[in-house]
Amino acid sequence: MNNFRVGEEVYVIYRNPHAVNVANIEKAEVVEHPHNNQELALFLHDAYHPLTEDDAVFSSFEDAEELYNQLFDYETYD
Rank of each mutant, 00 (worst) to 15 (best):
Y14H: 11
N3E: 15
V12L: 06
V30H: 11
P34L: 08
P17A: 03
Y14E: 05
V12T: 01
Y14A: 07
E29P: 10
E29C: 09
K27M: 03
V20S: 09
E29G: 12
L42T: 04
N16Y: 03
D55F: 15
D54L: 09
N37M: 11
A28C: 04
N36C: 13
A19W: 05
V30P: 09
H18Y: 05
V30Y: 10
V20C: 03
H33V: 05
A23Q: 15
H49L: 12
I13E: 03
A47S: 11
V6A: 08
E8S: 12
K27N: 03
V12M: 02
P50D: 05
L42G: 02
N16A: 03
E8Q: 15
L51Y: 05
D55N: 14
N3A: 14
N37S: 14
V6S: 14
M1C: 14
E32H: 06
E39T: 02
P50Q: 02
V31H: 04
A23K: 10
R15A: 07
H45M: 04
A23V: 12
F43A: 00
N16G: 01
V10W: 08
N37G: 08
I13L: 03
A56E: 11
L40N: 01
M1E: 14
E53G: 14
V10F: 11
M1H: 15
